[in-house]
Write a protein that binds this DNA or RNA. Sequence first.
DNA 1: GCCAACGTTGGC
DNA 2: GCCAACGTTGGC
Length: 162
Amino acid sequence: MPRYWLMKSEPGTYSIADLERDGSTGWEGVRNYQARNFMRDIMQPGDGVLFYHSSAEPPGVAGLARIARAGYPDPTALDPRSPYFDPKATDQEPRWYQVDIAFEQRFPEIIPIATLREAPGLEAMLVINRSRLSVQPVTPEEWEIVLELANQLPFRAPSGTV
DNA sequence: GCCAACGTTGGC
DNA sequence: GCCAACGTTGGC
């Protein structure tokens, strides 16, 4: 059973264009326990991902990805030179986990969070109510609504890529 | 730049 | 184990 997620990144750090260029990437650097638990325990290859640009103008959903690899220890937690280094992480107790995500599509325009707020059926979406959670589940109903919004964008998004 | 939300830390 | 202080996130 596929699951759906929303994952946030500041585009200045890593954008949907970066993911398109790279094809796939490790979602390193998450240092929040709730977000970690989703990645470590629940996400599975094939799950759908809304790729969200935070602290952007405008902030919103920039495209789609999918989970390419289930949770595994985040190596940056063990690397003293990494900005994500955590001295409490060890090989035996990795503490932080990541997944790999693969590029699916880039929307022709961002779907702004203001549009999500106004869309019927998205009232309970976590990105609206718990904006600080950087990895969050999305219901199948919410996923469908967001894809419909994407298809209403001026340059129709390519179909059949999911 | 401001500020609300909220997660984490640390004193007790 | 509580809770105040503090730091960070992220929309506006």
